[in-house]
């Protein structure tokens, strides 16, 4: 589309100035555009608000239900309060998980302390950002998928790169133990975020962000606690359940009823 075509689009429905009318006459795209616009004339109402002035029982019911809801909940809850509650739950589960699994030694990961701390901070950042992305009102969705995939990739690569390569337990048992711990520790954060997700419109990107952040809580605990550093173990015991939880979050959210369709 040329700048003139864009001007024609903006002027649709109003008398075109001579220069734009001349452009339309010579531009096939604009003729198609104006033709499509005019074709809808036969079903377009004279004003923008079709049906205005005809309240009807349906609208009366809608009004009554909305007022009942307003009476039941007269105070508006800012969205960031839910964000803070969820972050509090995440921090609580992390602390509980570290306390339960880390009896004897808090840090079981055999990698250098700065590697353990660096990867841990990355996971923590992903948990915070994912929770924000899942719950914050959205005006634009363009950067969301990109930011989410980039964040998840960075965490996954950092986790693999930070592995020590040391095997502490035979593969099936070690992997299953971490997998089970990760799933169990994710139950509460995932349940909480799903409840809150139902208070806004279903968007897959939000559900993925919610799943990654809820799974990130247990991923952090396992990262700090687990002493097995082989790539195979990290892939199957740490990263695969984390990604599966993100998929599960989308599946569950798509089936749960939506309490509000606000963006």
């Amino acid at each position: 589309m040329t700048p003139a075509c864009l001007k024609v689009m903006d002027a649709l429905g109003t008398p075109l100035p001579p220069d734009l009318a001349a452009h339309v006459a010579g531009c096939e795209d604009c003729r198609a555009l104006a033709g499509g616009f005019e074709a809808l004339e036969s079903i377009a109402p004279s004003g923008g608000d079709a049906g205005a002035g005809a309240p009807g029982t349906g609208l009366e019911t809608a009004h009554r239900l909305a007022l009942e809801e307003l009476t039941a909940r007269p105070r508006a809850t800012p969205w960031w309060r839910e964000l803070l509650v969820l972050l509090g739950v995440d921090v609580g589960v992390m602390a509980l998980g570290l306390a339960l699994l880390g009896r004897g030694s808090w840090v079981g990961n055999q990698a250098a302390p700065w590697v353990v701390a660096g990867v841990g901070l990355l996971i923590l950042a992903l948990v915070g950002a994912g929770t924000y992305l899942a719950l914050a009102p959205q005006r634009r969705k363009v950067p969301s998928w990109g930011a989410l995939l980039l964040g998840a990739t960075v965490v996954a690569v950092a986790q693999l790169a930070g592995g020590t390569g040391q095997r502490m337990r035979p593969p099936p048992m070690g992997g299953l133990g971490c997998m089970a711990s990760e799933v169990l520790l994710s139950v509460v954060p995932l349940a909480c975020v799903l409840v809150l997700l139902c208070r806004s419109a279903f968007q897959p990107v939000r559900a993925v962000a919610a799943g990654l952040s809820a799974g990130g809580v247990s991923l952090l605990v396992i990262h700090v606690h687990c002493s097995d550093g082989t790539a195979g173990h990290l892939l199957t015991g740490h990263l695969a359940p984390w990604l599966a939880l993100a998929g599960l979050a989308v599946l569950l959210r798509s089936r749960l009823p939506t309490r509000s369709h606000a963006p």
Partner: peptide, 21 residues
């Protein structure tokens, strides 16, 4: 369906007024 959806729309508006920026 539109009648049902109008109800959902305004219920959502009331429930989510804290999300309006």
């Amino acid at each position: 369906t539109a009648e049902d959806l109008v109800q959902l729309t305004f219920l959502s508006l009331v429930r989510s007024r804290g999300r309006f920026q």
